[in-house]
Structure formats: structure tokens, C-alpha cells
Design a protein around this nucleic acid. Sequence first.
DNA 1: CTGAAAGCGCTTACAG
DNA 2: CTGAAAGCGCTTACAG
Lengths: 358, 358
Amino acid sequence: MKRKPSIHDIARELDVSATAISFVLNGKAKEKRVSEELEKKILDYIHKVGFSPNLIAKSLRTGKSNIIGMLVEDISDPFFSSITRWVETRAFEHGYKVFFSSTENETEKAKSLIRIFRERQVDGYIIAPTPGIEAEIRSLMDDHIPVVLFDRHFPQLPTINVLIDNYQGAYDAVDHLRVNGYKNIGLVTLDSKQTQMTDRLKGYTEAIKANKGKGCVLKIPFAHREAVKRISDFLTVNKGLDAVVFLTNYLAISGLEAIAALGLSVPEDLAIVGFDDNTHFSLFSPSITAVAQPVEEIAGQVILQLIDRLRKPEAKTGKKTIVLPTQLIVRNSSGRKVKTKPVAGPKGFTTVKTKPIP
Amino acid sequence: MKRKPSIHDIARELDVSATAISFVLNGKAKEKRVSEELEKKILDYIHKVGFSPNLIAKSLRTGKSNIIGMLVEDISDPFFSSITRWVETRAFEHGYKVFFSSTENETEKAKSLIRIFRERQVDGYIIAPTPGIEAEIRSLMDDHIPVVLFDRHFPQLPTINVLIDNYQGAYDAVDHLRVNGYKNIGLVTLDSKQTQMTDRLKGYTEAIKANKGKGCVLKIPFAHREAVKRISDFLTVNKGLDAVVFLTNYLAISGLEAIAALGLSVPEDLAIVGFDDNTHFSLFSPSITAVAQPVEEIAGQVILQLIDRLRKPEAKTGKKTIVLPTQLIVRNSSGRKVKTKPVAGPKGFTTVKTKPIP
DNA sequence: CTGAAAGCGCTTACAG
DNA sequence: CTGAAAGCGCTTACAG
């Protein structure tokens, strides 16, 4: 592999000092009083040969990499992929490149990614934390490395957090169903102690209580292979349900599979509301009502907070939590309940009328 | 920011040489004849204090970063996101970290990403090329930096290419529709000269010709805002069509929106086949038939070829093209044509007719 | 078997 | 206004 020219090669070529080239390259020509003539000579040559400096060397020398490390749960999830897209764009405007990776919500994977990023001297972190990485985050903070958490957080850590109002989002979903005439509203959530999930669960519970209803909750382990079957069983056992709220994107997708397999009609047999909007929700038949997160604003706040911290690394850090509102996007899957429902079943519940497609 | 300990700090601490530590760290203790006693002393200390070496310094010294730069069209596209997931896993097994970015198929974005990666001394590249970056790729090859192209390629460049049989995939789609009784099969594709699209188009054209049919093609510019309207107009003008093949994932999604807006039934009014499978295709009503790419094998071949090249950087490079087969996944959207309009859907399938939301 | 030293390509305090 | 030199934290050829 041919060695690329270095600043010193160019210095020799042009018979100027490497110092001058460095100043010009970093836009410090004026400040450091490099003559305009010299500056032009250097710039012309650099453009001619298409020189680009070795950023590895620069990083080693300055201790800054201009890289932000970003950990998301799953880069192929529509919520996380759109967040990263926005973050990437905004970071670029500030001169930063973002490297992201998926944790799949696994503690060990998150720990090893943080280690890898640290070894490469990443300047700051944006993290949707997995459970169990409090120590790693604390260690970053101890070394004064800027960290912003989003989507979920650790209440005991004095981090900067960009969150949404999970409680209210779930509450709104239930309330919307109630207003539209649904009486028995079930919930499908993850079996998780992470804040985003517990807050959503609380929103559901409180909304149910407020109307003196009875809750009915199914908790499924993260990334469970048999999520569809679990939901299917849940719906079969709890025939009285006339609506279900799904607390994540993927649970809603699994739920729709289960509902299709059971041959239920939405919303006639069962109304549906999802959490996290999805490009395809408007395309399903019927289209799916969902609690949407303000993706662009989340990304904007995340980068704003991080850049701010990167600018003043020695500033006193304190806990700071930003909570953004959700928005309920009403579509057909939660349409007003039709009271006059044919035949049997308690509360107008129709039994399976179609065989699942083999 | 506290300075992290370096190899020399540890050398001083333990009263050994930095050389020995470096050898131990790189698993060369045996080879370089470091005594077992010394090795143990060093390892113990390193584990105790949790030392991790500065990879930036290592990169600068060795000229290797152990990073692979990967350019995809759009990381949030299900096809590309699953490819990157596999590539990431497989690369990690070989000691490489993958940094990926989306080009959005824009020439300038791709060029600037390649520049950014080069500045950071990335060891090798995996690229789904945008149009117009032949020169950049040639320049990488001139500098003996390993490059593997996938999904599409430049026939005039002697690169390593991992492709699928786009021609056959499209041909199969048309043939399947023909066998199921469809006579007037239209096509919706991108207005693109990239190989993956031209090959698919050729597959369609030849399949139509082989049956002495008449083709009917709509070409839409990449990322066109009004794709739905274009398709809608196309379907309205060409009322004779009884089936349509969509040559990309997103075109199929836009097509479904158009079809919903027009109030057409699938497959009764119009049968559908997509290119690239999609997690949600099985969930739509009806489920969508698609030409699936062998994602895991593509990723496997891509990494295999790249690692091979990274191992022997000076080896003669020659053009090498690997073509993998596609698989047609038959679902309900292309069900056998029923001459007399059906009462209910075939196979106990329920079609929910809902008006599009205004 | 072990260690001192040079050098990867930058930046910047310092001396002229 | 300009340049020589030190140093960021590693690796490795070389001398002992």
C-alpha cells in the first residue's frame, strides 16, 4: 500500500514549514498570522493534489476524535433508525461523525461496545441504555466524558436524559379507547424493569383505575421467540377483551400476526393501539392507531445537549431530564365501537370465524 | 479529563519494559520469548486496573485500524439493515469493527463518506455503490485498499462483487404470475441505470417477450415524493393490467398505498409481487408475494471476500463476481386468478374493505 | 530473555 | 511572520 503524503512531505515539496500547513489546514491562518500569500500557495497545492490529513494522527495528538459513539437497541427498528438518521445529520453540522451500533438490549453487548468505543477515543456518547450498565456509564462520567441517555434512563444516575412522556402516552391510548366505547382494555408489554416500559405500564394502570375498570396485562420477555403464540394464548384465554394496547412496535406487529391467525376482525372483534408509530401502520388493513414519539425533536435535543457538553467539558455536570410529549395518531384500528354486534359471546365478542391460514 | 494510563505508565509501575507489555498485550509473549513469570505479572496487573490500550496510537503506528467502512443505501431499509447486522457479526469474529453510513444513493454523500473513512484510515470497504463513484473506487484500488461491492456494481471496474441474480428474480416473478393466470403484467421500477435495476428490468422484459405479452412499465425517480400519485395515475391509465411487479421494497409499499387509495382489491382486481422481502409483507392483508434475497449468504460472501483480501493486501487483484440465487416467496397477493369475481377471498381469507383515511 | 530508542503524522508552545 | 522540536501512545527492529 502506497504511503499517503503527510504534512511534512508537502512542507518539503513547497519549501514551507509543516507548522504553516497545519495552521492553514485548521483555518488558523489569520489567527496565527500566516501571510495571505503563503496561505494561498498552500491551499492551491493541497487542492491540486487532493491532500487530506491523517485524522488518526490528529486524534492522537489532540486527544479529540470528533466521533460520537451511539448505542441503540436495534438499528433496524424504525424508531431507532429514524433517530439515528436525524442525529447523524445534526452532528455532521457540528463537525462530528456518528458511529452507531445495536445492543439488542443485551448488557454484555453494550459493555463491550462501550469498551470498543473508549479504546477508539470517542469524544461523547449517546446511549439508549440496556439494563445493568450503570457502572460503565458512571465510569464515563467520572472521566468527564459527555454522555446523553435517551429513550430510557437510570433514575439514580445524574445523567442528561432525553425522554418522552411515556406515562401520558399510554394513558392517552387507554383513554382514547374508552372514549370510543371500549370497556375491557388489555395490555401487552415487555417483561422489563426499564423506565420507558414501567412508565408506560403505570400510564395504562392509572388510566384503567381512573375509570374503575379491570386491567389485564400480558408481559413477554424481550425478543421472545414465541411472542405471537403468547399473545394468541392471551387473547384466547381473555375472550372478554374488546381492545388491546401494545407497548412497543414489535409487540404490535406480533399482536397483528396473532390476531390474523385467530381470524379476528379489527376493530370489530378487537380494537388495537400501538406504541411507536411505524411507516407501515397506515398501510395495514385496517390502519393502526399509535402513540407516536416526536423523533425529530428527540434527536435534536439529544445532539443539542451532547454538543453543549462537548463544548465545555469541565462544566459542572448535574442531572438534567428533558421530557417531550407524545402524540396519539388515530387511525382505523380503534374506531368507535359498534354496540349492535351479532350473536353470542359476552360483550359482543365474536368467536373465531375463520381458520388460520395454514 | 483525566489522562488514561499508557503502556509506559504501567511499565514504570511494574518496573518492566513497555516492549514486554506490548508483546503480552498482542499475544506475542511466547513468540517473542517473554518469560511466563513476566507475562503473568503483566496480565494480572492489567486485569486488576482494567487497562485498555489506546487503539488510536496503535493505528497510527501500525497503519491498520481494524475498522471496515460500509456504505449502504439506507440503513433503515430492511434489506440493508439485515445485511449490516450479519456483516457486523461476522466481521467481529475476525477482529474487525464495522462502521456504516447511509448514502441515500447520492453521489456526493458517498464521495464525502469515502473521504471521511479514508481520513480515518479504514482498512477495507464494503460498498453498495451510488452512481458516479467509479473514480473513488478506482482510487481505493490504486492504493491497494480492499473493496467489495454488493447489491450493484460497475461492470467496467475489476472489483470483487457480491450480487444476486436480479434477472432471474424478476423473470421468476413474472412467470409465477403468468402461471397463475395473469395476462397483463405491468412493472413499476426506478428510473435508474444501476445494474441491479437494469438487470431486473431485463428479466421482466424477457419474461414478457417469452410469452408474447405486452409490457407496460412505469419508471419513477429515486426517492420521488409523489411515487404514490405516479403509481396511482399509472394504474388508472392502464386499466387493463391485472398484475403488477414492483422492483423494490419501497415501490411496493408506495404501490400498496396507491392501491388502497384507489379501492382496488388484491389480488382480485390486481395481483402484486414485490422485490426484496419485508418482515411486514406477511402481515399485510392480503400477504404480499415477494422475490427474497439470500441476505445471510450475501453478508457471508461479502465478509469472506473482504477478509481474504485484507489478509493478503498485495495479492493480484482481479475482477471476481459472485452471483447468488433469489427465492420467490409465494403469498396471497398473487393467488391464482379467479375468472368470476369471488364472493369471499380464497382460502378462507377475509378482505377487510375500509375506506382510505382522508 | 529484556530494554532503549526511533518513528507513525499530526499540533502547538516556544524561540527567533 | 516563520520554523525546529517535542510529544500524543503505541510497535518493533535492534543491540545487549
